[in-house]
Nucleic acid binder design. Structure first.
Lengths: 259, 259
DNA sequence: CGACGCTACCGTACATCGTACGGAGATTCT
DNA sequence: AGAATCTCCGTACGATGTACGGTAGCGTCG
């Protein structure tokens, strides 16, 4: 498989107390007995993020992190209980790596700015999307701050608390989905050395041989135009902006119905 | 890591001609010389789907497939060039495993039925979401048929071809996102043996210790209510139905603006 | 009808992973 | 000084996909 893989990961497996200490930096004061520690969790996390940014979560191995830090592999386990916790902390740190979003304008402007900012964060740290963080997110400082920021954008406009939560989640889910598509596309290109246009021009004639245009007339018509326009099967950035407008129109309809 | 992993996968890497032959079953007639083949690609794909359904894509290994078929591991490579192509074919077959969606009603009823059907398919084959199939999907018979079905739902209602494509993609992306959340939740529970409610009741008091309610008043207010309602951080099924309504409202607004 | 050559099958081997285990050495407290 | 306690880390295990090359079964041709 080699470059054909991407490791996924989900957290909340280890000791909850230890996990929260790692995330919030509230660990116990260092023991006085024994040798001093030569590393910090932050240094390890920083190196982990570097590797994951450059080569993906699949390329992040404890051996590689240790090597880059000039220590033995097993030394890392003095700082971090397992790779799972390391990735959890990396996740929270990377989420907060971008410039803050100014809370200017109405709810629509704010949600748009938030969506674009989140999209940018995913482009900078594509491996964030490989961390399963929807049902049991790492409850670190950044995640909490972002949750507050998002909710404020839709506060005081007539929605119930549950609706506010749902709207924020919906936008987040959609950004994740389109960002994932964009990242897949970039990754496919860099890993295979084949651009989307080249890929399409290889497969299009092969598809034509087996494709029954009488059976699938609409697909034939739309696929023709979409293929010419995007030079691939799907344009993620266009899909992002288009879909965001539709979704916010839908939110506007909800708000209007409440007024 | 053990159960802490999920392998991702993206296709279109191997020989395109061979890939399309596998997907469409248009391979060359079997050679007359030499021993007969004892297996078929379909049997291998079927076993692959069984394993992936039961234990996830990470548990799908060539060794396990071969073992279950009673052959040596390397024998599989007589039928399939690599694991990547096997997963591509599994993907197309599993996509078409559900009951067909009847094209009844208007565009909204049809898109709703399609979204629910797709959601169900993802629940039956959760590993489908771990196959990166957005930018360069396996161009198999099922994918093509589904594309036609989806486009027909929005055909003839005043949208351009590009808009039709975008609307279908948008709904697809959203279903994927919420289905992913639901699957993560189910997986977290079955892998850890801890329900969402138990997880939340473990983490909530730990979070309270570090959470600053003065700094994050809206998160405190909404999180309180959402936590009580969902007994977890996020309810995927509720999110799916809620978001689908908003998105379709947004599509309705687009259609109205064209009329 | 025997031998040739093609083919399916598959045993072995390699590099890679996370991490359990336990030893060695450093540091501080008694 | 000696005991206690900690950091650091070498080794080992059971996984993974698949390249390579050997073997045995089979159709075809001389």
């Amino acid at each position: 498989m080699a470059k054909n893989d991407e490791t996924r990961h989900y957290g909340g497996r280890g000791d909850p107390v230890r996990s929260m200490e790692l995330l919030w930096g509230t660990g116990p004061t260092p023991k006085s007995r024994g040798p001093k520690q030569g590393l910090t969790v932050e240094r390890i996390v920083g190196v982990g993020i570097e590797i994951a940014d450059a080569e993906g979560l699949a390329a992040l191995s404890m051996r590689r992190v240790a090597e880059r830090l000039g220590v033995g592999t097993m030394s890392l386990y003095t700082y971090v209980p397992s790779k799972a916790e390391l990735v959890d902390v990396m996740f929270d740190r990377a989420l907060g790596s971008g410039p803050p979003v100014e809370p200017d304008g109405g709810w629509r402007e704010q949600l748009t700015a938030i969506a674009r900012s989140t999209w940018d964060t995913y482009q900078r740290h594509p491996w964030l999307l490989a961390v399963m963080a929807m049902s049991r997110p790492p409850l670190g400082p950044t995640s909490i701050a972002i949750y507050e920021r998002d909710l404020r954008a839709v506060d005081g406009i007539g929605l119930t608390e549950l609706e506010m939560d749902s709207v924020v989640s919906m936008v987040g889910v959609y950004v994740q989905g389109t960002a994932r598509a964009a990242i897949e596309a970039a990754r496919s290109t860099s890993d295979t050395g084949v651009t989307d246009a080249e890929w399409w021009s290889t497969y299009a004639p092969l598809l034509e041989k087996v494709f029954d245009a009488e059976k699938y007339p609409v697909a034939a018509r739309v696929g023709e135009i979409a293929g010419q326009t995007y030079q691939s099967a799907y344009d993620a950035r266009h899909g992002f902006e288009f879909g965001l407008e539709r979704i916010l129109d839908g939110v506007a309809a909800l708000i209007d119905s409440r007024a």
